[in-house]
Design a protein around this nucleic acid. Sequence first.
DNA 1: CTTAAATATTGATGTATGATAAGAAATTAT
DNA 2: ATAATTTCTTATCATACATCAATATTTAAG
Lengths: 191, 191
Amino acid sequence: MNELIEYIKHDIAITDTIQEKLNRISIKKEVQKGENILSENSLKKQHIFVLTGCLRSFYRMENGKEVTIQFAIKNWWIGDYITLYTENKSILSIEGLSKSEILLIGKTELERLYIEHPEFATFHRKNFERHIATLQKRILSLLTQTAAEKYKQFIADYADFAQKIPNYQIASYLGITAESLSRVRKEMANQ
Amino acid sequence: MNELIEYIKHDIAITDTIQEKLNRISIKKEVQKGENILSENSLKKQHIFVLTGCLRSFYRMENGKEVTIQFAIKNWWIGDYITLYTENKSILSIEGLSKSEILLIGKTELERLYIEHPEFATFHRKNFERHIATLQKRILSLLTQTAAEKYKQFIADYADFAQKIPNYQIASYLGITAESLSRVRKEMANQ
DNA sequence: CTTAAATATTGATGTATGATAAGAAATTAT
DNA sequence: ATAATTTCTTATCATACATCAATATTTAAG
């Protein structure tokens, strides 16, 4: 039994049938540090479940600068949700921040499971709901907080693994430059 | 048959039972311009479906300034998703921007329908997915675009009703001041 | 260990946008 | 219509953060 099933079992009673189907549709993969799993312009529509390690999704701007959309560690889902749910070509890239193990699950395969097993759909609906709340909170944060406030909230929210992420990537998640973040950190250290 | 059912029928075949249950749990309400439906600190957990008119959800900062989280018109859902899916007390307010008609649907009642009718849950899961993509796009926009770019995208995305919304509220949605938006508009007019 | 590469810091300077305040224009109410 | 209120604009000035460039520090590679 793999870790995804372990994780799902925390929430719902999962039948052997679902377990077996999940195993059948999920592809286990090892990702190296810096390795790209999903690249922009790819046509693959996949969900990723993190077993170990740490990943991030990011957008590369025309000028080459990158903005980080999401970080993910053990038991988190990550994906290019804009592509998964609207467009055709993927606009984000996903890479490993450290050596990681992941499960790749195709969109259509997952949807088949939703239909065949309503309790599995319910489990996922709750994930969606939490995800929506998280995204709204981030929007609120981007609209109302200063650089220092955003950083403080980030290290509080992501205490588990904030120190594993390079500061310049945290900066790109918060919507500030690495230089600004460095000044914020200096300011914080002096108090 | 009301407009919510009409709207749902565009997506899925809806049985009489679902229709009847939906009618039973949804409370129709008329909202005046400027009237608050949901206020911060309320304990109600409700989804709102807009039949006519225009609403917005917003957050009131400590200094009294408001930031707009979402606008909604006919056939859109709106709610305080942070409260609905995580916290207890509501942190957002929802008000009518014009005289509007809405349906109020309690969180628990809606969840009961999900369980009793998987096809209805599927319909809603797709809404969730689109919502996630929309929120991600907005985050990307906030992280990468200038004031002028955000405004141009806004009037393109919300062409249907952008002109119905006062500019200072559009500004508060884009994360800029009304004065800045005014300058952006002047700049655009001169070209 | 030593060197190379990646990441972080610091300083000097620039700029987009914010803050404040006043007046103009548009809505709404009387 | 007229007045009152709300919304929008304009100007001046302030500032948080960006940019650029150099150096320091840490991490990874040979």
